[in-house]
């Protein structure tokens, strides 16, 4: 292949990329508001407290895992990535993202497990287990204050469309879609509770109801159960797709991990 042809192909590639970006005329239907703004002052203060925020216990635990060299390959996360504070800054804003290795969109938890399988020679942390929540909280917390910016074009487009369809699909005995509450009635009240937009920028969150940390997928499953629908398993592609749509839907919102919610 001669050099000119390569240059032309490269240009075409760039143009195609731009076209793809601009072809995505998708705009969220409403101005995103973080779940933080729907909380009471007490909950907000607990989240803002850099000592009392219980989620920080998991972040600290995550740091222990990050530095842990007692794995099959003898390499901790820090051995390759270095200091989490610098290496992981901004990473959580990009997930869920398309992974060439997996050939589908994966979320941050799955990316961590992929790294653990392939570079540490260890088996996956089970979804929703304490170590996975801790390390995810650590990685996400490094992006605190940065806006979410997931890619929904190219190989991620299909996943995004599925996630969007999920969001607007009525389900369960109560026959409600996510949008029925979190879009049409955000800011209204459901008895004593205010209905948030269902944004996921603070995940993993410390939820007072659970008295522990929880991932986006635990929250999705909880919400699905609340409308009397059969929840999907944590880590299922349906929930990863929904997570991608949710992250896009709140794209200007800043990452708040570890957030505290009711």
């Amino acid at each position: 292949m001669n050099r000119a042809l390569v240059a032309i192909l490269a240009c075409a590639g760039i143009v195609a990329t731009f076209a793809a970006v601009f072809a995505s005329d998708q705009v969220p239907t409403q101005k995103p508001i973080s779940g933080y703004d729907f909380m009471t002052t007490e909950v907000q203060q607990l989240q803002d407290d850099d000592f009392a925020n219980p989620g920080l216990l998991w972040v600290e635990e995550g740091q222990t895992i990050w530095d842990d060299t007692k794995v099959a390959s003898g390499k901790s996360c820090a051995s390759c990535h270095g200091d989490a504070a610098t290496a992981m800054r901004g990473v959580a804003t990009r997930y869920p993202a398309y992974s060439a290795e997996a050939d589908h969109v994966i979320n941050l938890e799955q990316q961590i497990n992929q790294c653990r399988r392939e570079r540490q020679g260890e088996s996956d942390f089970p979804y929703e287990s304490e170590p996975l929540l801790s390390i995810t909280a650590l990685v996400s917390a490094q992006s605190k204050g940065l806006p979410q910016s997931v890619a929904i074009v190219g190989p991620a487009a299909e996943s995004f469309e599925r996630g969007k369809a999920f969001f607007y699909q009525r389900r369960g005995q109560l026959n409600l879609s996510c949008a029925n509450c979190h879009e049409q009635h955000a800011g209204d009240h459901l008895r004593g509770e205010s209905i948030s937009q269902g944004q996921v920028n603070g995940f993993p969150i410390y939820r007072a109801l659970w008295q522990t940390m929880g991932s986006t997928h635990r929250m999705f499953a909880w919400c699905n159960e609340a409308v009397r629908a059969e929840p999907y398993p944590a880590g299922s592609q349906e929930y990863v797709d929904l997570e991608l749509f949710e992250r896009w839907r709140g794209q200007v919102l800043k990452i708040e991990t570890p957030a505290v919610r009711r």
């Binding site: 000592f51 009392a52 219980p54 216990l57 998991w58 635990e61 008295q211 522990t212």
Partner: peptide, 9 residues
């Protein structure tokens, strides 16, 4: 003085 411990209680 502040102290917190991770425990399910």
């Amino acid at each position: 003085i502040r102290a917190i411990i991770q425990h399910p209680m």
